[in-house]
Amino acid sequence: MGESEILSVSFREISLKNTKQDRILLSDIHFSLPKNNIYAIVGKNGTGKTTLMKSLTRLLDKRYYDISGEVLFNSKNLLSLDANELVKIRENDIKYVFQDSINTFNPLKKFEFYFNKFAKDKTLIEKYLEHFQLPVKETLFKMRPYEVSGGMNQRISIVLSFLANPQLIILDEPNSSIDPAITNLLIHQIKDFAGSGDNSVLMVTQDLNFAEKVSNKIAYLSLSAGELAPGTLSQLYSPGEFFKSEQDEIKVFLNPNYELAQHA
C-alpha cells in the first residue's frame, strides 16, 4: 500500500451462503483509492454495487455472506479488525450515505439526536442545512424521519456525513431522490470535501452524467453471468476514457441503443 492511499481493496470472493451451494456474487475485485480522490463505480441494477460498498466495513450479515480478501484503511485490515475498533472507524473515519436513507434513521428518534451525535463542529450545522435547502435547525431538530420526504432524508443523511468530518465518505446512489439543482450543489460539496485534508470519496451511481462530472476515476461493475462468471470490476478509467471505452459490455451499458443499432 502506497503512502498516499487511504483505501486499498482486494476481494477474492464475496458470496451468499446457501444451504446447498454458496453463490459467488462478486470475485477478483482489486483497487486502491488515493487520498484527495473521488472514485465512482457504475453498473446495472442488481450487479452488487451496494453489496460491494457494504462489504468494505463488514456491514453485511455474517450469517448470510462470506467474504474473503483484504480491505486496508490506513493500513488496518477492516476485515480482520477487532469489532470495537471497527465501530470507532465507522463512527469517526468512514461515513456512509445509503440509498434508502430513510431506513438508516430510527423513526422514533428526532433528527436532533443524529446531529448531536455525529456533528463534530456544531457551528457548521446551520450553514450546511441552508446550503442543502433544508429547514432551519429549530424546525428540523424537532422532526422525525417519517415526517420529511425521501429526498429530504437523503439530503439530511448527506449533510450528516459531511458534518462528521470523516476521512472517507461512501455514497450509494446519493442523488437518486434529489433533483438536479441540488445534485449540482452536491457535486461542489463532494469536490470541496475531497480537496481538503487527506479526504476521499467512493461512490456507486447509475447516473452517468453525475459520475462523469464529479469523479476522477470510473470503474464498471459487470453483471454476473451465471455461476462460472461472477460479477467483477473493470479497470479504472478517467471519465474521458470511460465514455470512449471499447469494451463491449461497457459500450452497451453506456448506450442501450448500441446493441440494436448493430443488428439493424
Binding site: K44, N45, E173, S176, Q206, V252, F253, L254, N255, P256
Partner: peptide, 11 residues
C-alpha cells in the same frame, strides 16, 4: 424512471 439503470430506463 427513478432508480433505474440506463438499460431499464430505455426499455
Amino acid at each position: 424512471f427513478s432508480a433505474q439503470d440506463p438499460e431499464s430506463q430505455y426499455n
